[in-house]
Nucleic acid binder design. Structure first.
Lengths: 347, 347
DNA sequence: GTCAATGGTGACAGCGCTGTCATCTTGGCG
DNA sequence: CGCCAAGATGACAGCGCTGTCACCATTGAC
C-alpha cells in the first residue's frame, strides 16, 4: 500500500486529538481511559494502520515482548526427527500469537562448553521476558543456573523438583510408561524388553521406572537382561534389537524409550524376517512423525508437546512483570497411541 | 554472577576514557578508530561484559539486526515430518550466529486469507532487515507482493523467474529428478511410475518435468498412466501406490516427488507383500528423517537445504543497507542418496 | 456548598544507542 | 616550518515509546 513513512504514536495522537500518552494507554489496554476517548484513538489507529514499534517499546518499558525457546540443536547423527521440536515451537507460537509476543528460537548445542555464556549473552543483548528450556537442556544445572542468575523467568519443559525455585511443565512419563507396559502385558506378553534412553534425559529415565512399575503391576518380574541401554538414536535402537532378538529366549515385545530407537527395532525385525506384530510387538514413545510413516506404524506414547509449550509460554507472558520468581509445576498427561506395531503375544 | 544492572555504553565509555560514540564505533567495527583506542575500549567491554542492547540499537539505527524466516505452518494432517523446516532453520541460524543477528521464525498458514496482512503487520512492528520465504509460500504472489511492497528485502527459497526483481535460492530440481530417473532406468527398470506432488509447489512441479526428461534420456516412453497426482501427503502416496500396484502390468519402480509419499508407497508394498527393492524399487525426494528410519531405508534426493537457507540469510545480512533492491538467483545442486529401497529391476 | 477521593489526561524525561556534524590531531609535503 | 587534507574523536539530537508525576474534572459524602 503505502511505501511512505510508517505511522508513529505522534501521528495517531495528533489525528485523535489526544496526547501520545493516551494513545499508549489504549494500545496497552491500560485502565482509566474514557470509552469515547478510546474509540477516537482506535479509529485513528485503524485509519493510519498504526503498529507500535517493538524496539521503541522494549527500550522504554524494559519489556521486550518476546520470549525465547531454547533447545538442544539436534546434531544430524543424533536425532534428526524434528517432530519434537517443531511441536514445541508450534505450541509456543500459538501462545505468542494470541498475546502479540514474538518467539525467538535458539538452538544451543548442549555439547558446547559455553552454551551457558552464550545464553547469558543473548539475554543481555535482547532482554527476553522469559525463556522456555526444552529437555535435555532443562536437566542441565549449568544451563539452568546460568539463566536463573540473570533473573530471567524460566520455564523448564521437564520434570521439576518441587523444591526448586522454578516453574516446570512436564508429562507423566512414569505413569504412562507403566500403562504402556501393562497394555503389552494385557496382550499376553510375558517377556517385555525395554530399550532405555540416554542417561542425561531425565524424562527418559522416568520411563524406565514406569516400565518397572508396569511389570510389577502386571505380576511380571523385572530382569536386567531384558533392558538395553540405548542413547536415543536410531542406531542404538538397532543395536538393542540385535542383542535382544538374538537371545535364545527372545522377548515377544520391545518397548523403547523413544520412537527413534523403536524405529530401529522395527528395521532390525524386518531385516531378520521377524513379523511385527505377529511375532514381536514394538512400542515407542514420543509420537514423532516417523512413528506413523513406517510400516507397521508404531504404537507409541503421545505427549501433548504443543500444549505443554503453549502453557509454558503463557506462564511466562502472564507472569511477566511479576516480581516474585516463577515457581510451580504442571503435569500434562500423555496418552497411548495404539497403532499397528503391537498385537497379541504369539503362542 | 552479577544480578546488578547491565553495563551500558556509558559505563564502557567512562571506563575506557572515551566518548560513547567511540565505543559505538568499536562495537560496530567502523573505520577510523586508532588501534590503541580500540584496544582500550575492547578491554573495557570485556571487563564489563558489555553487550549492546538490541532494542536501543534498532531504534536508533533503523536496523533491527534480525531477519525472519517464514514458512508454511505444517498442519498436522499434511506433513508432520519437520526435517525440511528444521534444516532451513539450522542453516539460517548458522548465518545469523556468525553475523550476530537473530532469527525470528514465523510459521504462517498459507490457507489463511490474511497471511499477507499478518506479515505486513509483523514487518511494521518489528522492522526485520529481511525475510526468507520458504516454499510453497515463496510461490504465492500475494505473499511475495505483500512483502515486496513494504520494501523489505526478500529471498525466496524456490525457483525464481529471472525477470523478477527478486533474489532466489533454489536447487536443480528438474536436473536431479532426471538423474534419479536415469539411475532407475540404468538398473533395468522399464516401467517407472511417478507420484507427483501438489500443484502449488513449484519445485515439486519441476520434478515431474525432470522425470520426463530422464525417461527421454533413457529411451523410455512417457505415459500418463504411470503418473499419479498426489498432494505431498503420506496418504496420497499410499493412494498412488494402491492404484499403481494394482494395475495388471505394474511398475517395477516408483519415484515419488517427496519422501512422505515414498514412505506411503513403502507402507503399501509391505502390506501387499511386495518386496522392496526385490520386486519394486522406490525413490523419494527431500531426505527427511523418515527416509533413513524406515525399512528399507529410502533412496532419495538430498537438497542442501541448510546451505540454501544459510546463503539466503547471508545475502540478506550482507545486502542489508544497500539501497538497490535485491535481485539475482543461485542454484544449489542436490545429490542422489542411494539407500536400500532401490535395486535392479526384477527379471 | 465544601472537601476529599477518584478518574481521566498530558507534559516531560528518559530507555541505550546511532547519525550528523563540528572539532581536534596527525602526518605529509612544499 | 607552516599548511592542509585526512584521520580520529566527541557533543548532541533524536529514534518511538513508556513511566512518573502533576494536574484538572468529576463525583459523592458530609
Amino acid at each position: 500500500m503505502n511505501t511512505s513513512r510508517k505511522a508513529t504514536i505522534d501521528d495517531v495522537a495528533r489525528m485523535a486529538g489526544v496526547s501520545i500518552k493516551t494513545v499508549s494507554r489504549v494500545t496497552n489496554r491500560e485502565p482509566n481511559v474514557r470509552e469515547s476517548t478510546r474509540e477516537k484513538v482506535e479509529a485513528a489507529i485503524a485509519k493510519l494502520n498504526y503498529r507500535p514499534n517493538i524496539s521503541a517499546r522494549s527500550l522504554a518499558s524494559l519489556r521486550s515482548h518476546f520470549i525465547v525457546l531454547v533447545y538442544d540443536d539436534p546434531s544430524p547423527y543424533e536425532n534428526p526427527s524434528g517432530g519434537y521440536i517443531l511441536r514445541l515451537q508450534q505450541g509456543a507460537l500459538r501462545a505468542c500469537g494470541t498475546a502479540n509476543y514474538e518467539l525467538l528460537i535458539h538452538p544451543g548445542r548442549a555439547r558446547k562448553r559455553d552454551l551457558a555464556a552464550e545464553l547469558q549473552s543473548l539475554i543481555e543483548r535482547a532482554r527476553p521476558e522469559g525463556m522456555i528450556l526444552a529437555a535435555p537442556l532443562s536437566n542441565m544445572p549449568s544451563i539452568v543456573d546460568a539463566i536463573a542468575s540473570t533473573g530471567t523467568p524460566l520455564v523448564q519443559l521437564s520434570p521439576g523438583k518441587d523444591s526448586a525455585n522454578r516453574y516446570s511443565v512436564s508429562t507423566n512419563d512414569r505413569e504412562i510408561s507403566a500403562e504402556m507396559t501393562r497394555y503389552l502385558a494385557s496382550l499376553g506378553h510375558q517377556r517385555i524388553a525395554f530399550i532405555a534412553g540416554h542417561r542425561s534425559h531425565k524424562a527418559v529415565g522416568n520411563r524406565l521406572l514406569g516400565y518397572q512399575d508396569g511389570l510389577r503391576d502386571s505380576g511380571l518380574n523385572f530382569s536386567e537382561r531384558l533392558v538395553f541401554a540405548g542413547d536415543n538414536s536410531l542406531a542404538s535402537g538397532e543395536a538393542g534389537a540385535d542383542k535382544l532378538l538374538n537371545r535364545k529366549r527372545r522377548p515377544t515385545a520391545i518397548f523403547a524409550a523413544n520412537d527413534d530407537m523403536a524405529a530401529g527395532v522395527i528395521r532390525v525385525a524386518a531385516r531378520m524376517g521377524i513379523e511385527v506384530p505377529g511375532q514381536l510387538s514394538v512400542a515407542g514413545c514420543d509420537d514423532i512423525s516417523v512413528a506413523s510413516h513406517i510400516f507397521p506404524s508404531l504404537t507409541t506414547i503421545r505427549q501433548p508437546l504443543a500444549a505443554m509449550a503453549e502453557r509454558a509460554a503463557l506462564v511466562l507472558i502472564e507472569e511477566s512483570g511479576a516480581s516474585s520468581p516463577l515457581r510451580g509445576s504442571e503435569i500434562f498427561p500423555a496418552s497411548l497411541k495404539i497403532r499397528e506395531s503391537t498385537g497379541p503375544a504369539p503362542e
